[in-house]
Design a protein around this nucleic acid. Sequence first.
RNA 1: GGCGGGGUAGCUCAGAUGGUUAGAGCGUUGGAUUCAUAACCCAAAGGUCGGCAGUUCGAUUCUGCUCCCCGCUACCA
Length: 676
Amino acid sequence: MSEFKRTTVTAALIYANGPIHIGHLAGCYLPADIYVRFLRLQNKDVIFVSGTDEHGVPITIKAQKEGKTPQEVVDYYYKEIKQSFEEFGISFDIYGRTSDPVHHKLSQEFFLKLYQEGKFIEEVTEQFYDEEAGQFLADRYIVGECPSCHQPGAYGDQCEKCGTTLSPNELINPKSTLSGSAPSLRPTKNWFLPLDQWQPELEKYVASHPEWKSNVSGQVKSWLNDGLKPRAMTRDLTWGVPVPIEGNEGKVLYVWFDAPIGYISMTSQLRPDWEKYWKDKDSRIVHFIGKDNIVFHCLIFPAMCMAHGDYQLADQVPANEFMNLEGDKISTSRNWAVWLHEYLKEFPGKQDVLRYALTASSPETKDADFTWADFQTKNNSELVAILGNFVNRAFVLLDKNFESKVPTKLEDSPLEIELKKSLSEIPDKLAAALEGYKFRDALVYAMEVARLGNKYLAEAEPWKLMKENPEKAGHVLNYAIQLVSHVSIALEPFLPFTTQKLRNSLGIAKADWALLGDFESIPVGTSLKNPGLLFEKLEDDVIQKQVEKLQQSKQQMLLQSKQPNPIKDTVDFESFAKMDIRIGQVIAAEKMEKSKKLLKLTVDDGLRQRTILSGIAEHFDVDQVVGRKVTFLANLAPRKMMGLESEGMILMAEGQDGKLSFIEPDSSIWNGASVS
RNA sequence: GGCGGGGUAGCUCAGAUGGUUAGAGCGUUGGAUUCAUAACCCAAAGGUCGGCAGUUCGAUUCUGCUCCCCGCUACCA
């Protein structure tokens, strides 16, 4: 670490199309903030950069849904997100945005350099085009019937009803969401970054960082083993950074091309000497991200930087896994989340409690689970009982017995010698944990100071000494106060609001790491101001209310999903009559070798045995389907899947819980019977 | 299906380049104490380290197979 003169810390850029939730915080913002605060404590040269990613199709979709312009959407969320972070004490040096003209300019220069130096491959591909709207359509702008579950309204990249990943040309009756017309295919030129050409260098780069976390290097090696492929760095869209080559109106840079450049463009707005933070060899770059961003930060952005040539590569990419909530994945669309802006409103002044709870169960090596019960326990039995209690004991004893003034010290007894010895081990352990990005461990070490404080008071018993030897009691309380000052330093990265309160009480202007181990830092005679209770107990009803709030949103979502789909467009009888629906019987079934969802069914249709591949393997075992009467579409065009041809489709109904159910005749109908 | 991550005390998680009694916090139980938000302090109980084989004098730690959870990926009608 000492070989670096300065550290550039980034936290993932987030899409400006929704508010922040605890998953985001635990994933990268909180660990990044702790790390940065730790470096600042040591007076290291560090900058902390993040911001919103304001391009990308999700933004335009959101805008369209709300009847706003993309700019209005990102303006709103940029403000809200920035404010939430500020209130929560995430101490960015700059929180920027990628719609900023400075960012556009820098991204375009970056792109142009690569273009002029021939680092891109130009390729013409066929993309869907909306004639009426006069533009190419992103996957998300094309809707149609899902080829998998046959629900209308599936998007070009994914059907949200059944979760199937799609590509636009698979959709049945694709339509543009802009004009409602059927799109046509048109050739268009785009620029690709040949990642395959950079593979050898990327492999070297990754190999030079054996210290990366196993989840990071694992994911990266997995991609490298598969072999990298050229990736398009431009898109046919209007919202984004325009491609800076003449004659290419209507094309923008791929969001993942310009987003990481955002880190750099934001830095450039922070300070005039920004370049050294990205270009100098003695600058250390650290990207804090969630595991979903690993590939972009460890392969694509480094490849871009290699192609460009001026910029340093990241030294560390501490990616966290995901934070779950009450046993379930956090989901914005299902409203299964604890939103930061709501927390700040409902728990005013309790930023540090959430910071503590999230750090203590941070998803550093595997997905973690946030529960309100755990939040309550952490608050009541750690923050209140150990930290708050110790500080309170020290100040109350001082107020009662020494008129709030720091008393004089005497000769150290074995107790103080023991205390100093225990305490002297903490700074190194704490620093090592923080430098190794083990924030959960680090928090335990920092809390150890308060634990030692409680232990010391219990053993020294100053309340007893007051009666027989007040001067000795004063000696003990001097130590207790020095310990409070230690607490205010060791916990600063984690609990900045609480430690600020302590500094106010102790009359310390600025936290300084070097004062850990100094037992003279609060001078004798200093008049101190009791900070009052640092934390208060959280009663069951408060916690219960939060749990209920979550349950309600879950119920609401369930109710919504229970609502029947709207009736599809009217069809005439002839169209209906074209469908040949029949009853058949499954006489054999087997799991498809390479598929999770597919069962290969042999169906007796009365005439012959036909093979139907059905995506029901996750719902039914082989022996649950053999012998069953089924309803199937007999004249569906055969389709090849996983190497086998499927001749028809089994009709299924989906239950409210998402489970599939066969459509079976209620009496034993003969195989081959027509359904009409 | 392929690839990656993980499966360790009641809960949340550490850890070991293989070696005497496997750790922490919370929870539980017992004790001590009253300065403190019934908080603190001391102590104890709690684990055949997912399962099965193999390598080894010795594996929970290495290898192979297998089961479960999470993620990425795939021609998922």
